[in-house]
Design a protein around this nucleic acid. Structure first.
Lengths: 230, 230
DNA sequence: AGCGGCGATCTGTAGGACAGGTTTTACCGG
DNA sequence: CCGGTAAAACCTGTCCTACAGATCGCCGCT
């Protein structure tokens, strides 16, 4: 056994404080100075350990106030992937389409089972705006909004977060929107909405899977160059 | 707009270097000293930015040698969630069971479509050992091994990584294994293997979903206290 | 009691110093 | 010319000090 580095020691110490219940969600961590003294490593090492936990969504730091344990919700941690998914090459994105297809299909089926009239009305409004929009960026935003609304209707926050992460990167590889593709895309949205409105989970699932698969086909055909996303 | 912090500046700089292709997977980053001078922030801030990317699986550091861009594979980044999932409370785990059910079911259907005789033989061997084992830890390990083997058979590395992450935490909330539960669990495994062997994707999917759902039911019934996992 | 200000505390950042690794270079013997 | 070894250059890991800027809390004043 090689000896453990100072940052690893700090990380282990912090993780244990949270895992054993000493620190509950929302609690403030001891100050960096105190932690430094208690764990026996320098303040810099403590900070690096906190950075690690912060990157993973476990804690969040407020300057001047302190570092606080996060809510420890699965969705928060899944969302931390968004930053890194933005760096993936096209091949990896295509690999992730399989997850996206499965999860969006499931979310659509849940939405069909659970949605109410207000939700249907909201979805319909989004599609109205999307179909009449002429601005590409707006179309992309509305498309994302529609799919996220469907995913949220499923009622599982982690599922929504996962879909959001998977979708975020696809937008970095823009498929050129011709009249033809937009027509097909719009029709796909209406099919999903129709199945959700009819409370038909199977139809909704199939429609969502088909819609995602269609996007994947376009992406494989065009293989656009990546755009850097802030 | 408040001004951007030094670490954020460093993070943005590093992220851009990777996103715009200046740094390819496997490449070595400029040394911390050089980055510090080039980006215009202190070495400490550079290190914190690198820690962030390291925590997310984007780069990896080797002492004395340098920091290198990772392979930028989706599976690697998904795996970084394992550390944080280990801190989630039971409620979050139950929420994640929905994802697990959907993804494992899909993985099983893929496995059924794609597996060969050697794979079936390997899976069967695992179950043989699992069914005759009397050691709880060994049973847990073999159970995990079986499910991961099935997930890998799906051929999608990201899917396997996701299933692995989702499963890793469940093991921290151990359901007491009675003769009854073990019998049901073993039968579930055999059902999955049978469907996979028969190349019946639908049956495999249903069997896997049922198996995961059964685990969820047990977990909801017993609600065991968490065990801290190293 | 309410309020304002001031001090204590905390994070953010910079810079220097050194230990302990790794890689490259230069030198020397064959 | 080649191989091997030792030194030098380089890099990350860690600690220390110092100070700026933000935030919080206490105390005294009205």
């Amino acid at each position: 056994m090689h000896d453990v580095s100072a940052v690893e020691t700090a990380l282990h110490g912090l993780r244990t404080l949270i895992a054993d219940g000493s620190l509950q969600p929302g609690d403030r961590l001891p100050s960096e100075g105190v932690l430094s003294e208690r764990i026996g490593v320098s303040r810099g090492s403590i900070r690096e350990a906190i950075r690690t936990l912060s990157a993973l969504g476990v804690v969040e730091t407020r300057r001047g106030a302190g570092t606080f344990v996060g809510e420890l919700r699965a969705a928060d941690m899944i969302r931390t992937l968004a930053l890194t998914v933005g760096l993936l090459p096209l091949e990896s994105i295509l690999e992730l389409f399989e997850l996206r297809r499965v999860l969006e299909a499931h979310a659509a089926s849940l939405a069909a089972a659970r949605c109410d009239d207000a939700a249907v009305s909201g979805l319909s409004t989004i599609l109205d705006r999307l179909e009449t929009s002429t601005d590409v960026d707006e179309q992309s935003a509305l498309d994302h909004e529609f799919h996220m609304a469907v995913a949220r209707l499923g009622g599982n926050e982690s599922l929504g977060a996962m879909v959001s992460v998977l979708r975020s990167r696809s937008r970095a590889y823009p498929v050129p929107l011709t009249d033809e593709t937009k027509r097909i895309s719009d029709a796909g949205h209406r099919t999903i909405l129709g199945a959700v409105t009819a409370h038909d989970p199977v139809a909704a699932s199939v429609a969502a899977a088909a819609h995602v698969a269609q996007s994947e086909v376009w992406l494989r055909e065009h293989r656009p160059a990546p755009e850097i996303i802030g």
